[in-house]
Simulated scan of single mutants.
Amino acid sequence: MYTVIGPVKSRAMRVLWMLEELGEAYNHIDAAPRSDAARTYNPSGKVPALLDGTEVLTDSMAILTYLADKHGKLTAPAGTIARARQDAMTFWLLDEFDAILWAAAKHSFVLPQEQRMPAVKDSLKAEFSASADQLAAKLDGPFLMGDQLTVPDILACHCLNWAVGAGFPRVDDRLFAYGKNLRQRPAFQAAAAR
């Protein structure tokens, strides 16, 4: 059985949702980032962490890729063109969505007050909006990679939710509907209820 470390309102949600989609049993330790409990599993205190037996894995996207490959679900097979395209989408989302949201978070509450530059958030919101428009244009089916949910969908939906919570501008109707449909999945609902 797996153990997920990190609160639902963090990148740990990605891992919880993935495990629900896979139908895999897991325990959940709601350890806050940088807490002593989180440092038990990751010396940096960053969450999420995943225990698989005695092994500890960190970084939400490394964990999602590991789980998808291990269980052969929610991913294209490694070494295929489809996987290369999926990985390209994942990396694009990390660069154009996740990194922008993380930069905004750092300048909102993560960095010490004297290191924050709140004025940068306006440019980050504009950059995110431009990326959201690009993503909407890439949607060609119910999911980013076609007819089945894959790792990039979990990442994209998590980032869209994060953007709403961070007060970013609303995305266009097509991308909004995409996120809404993902949030209505039973696995998402089960993970969010933890």
Rank of each mutant, 00 (worst) to 15 (best):
Q189W: 09
M1P: 08
D36G: 01
D172H: 09
K121C: 09
V120L: 14
A187S: 12
D133A: 15
M89L: 13
P112D: 14
D173P: 05
G79M: 04
A32P: 07
E55Q: 15
P169M: 14
E24Q: 15
A187C: 08
K106S: 01
Y41M: 06
Q148K: 14
L144C: 07
A32H: 14
Y41D: 05
P142S: 14
D122Q: 15
A136W: 09
A82G: 04
D147W: 14
P118T: 09
F168E: 02
N181W: 00
Q113A: 15
P43D: 03
V47N: 02
K106L: 13
M89R: 02
M61C: 12
T58H: 05
E21Q: 08
M61Q: 07
D172Q: 07
C159F: 06
I81H: 14
D153K: 05
F128L: 06
H158Q: 11
A126K: 14
G45H: 12
A137C: 08
T40I: 01
A76H: 10
A177I: 09
K106V: 03
L144S: 00
R183N: 14
D172T: 07
Y66M: 06
T3K: 08
A163C: 10
S60G: 09
Q86I: 03
A62H: 10
Y2M: 10
G23Y: 05
T80W: 10
S108I: 11
Q86F: 08
P33H: 01
G146Q: 02
P77W: 05
L64N: 02
A132P: 06
E21S: 07
G79K: 01
G146Y: 08
N161F: 06
A84Y: 14
A37V: 10
A119K: 04
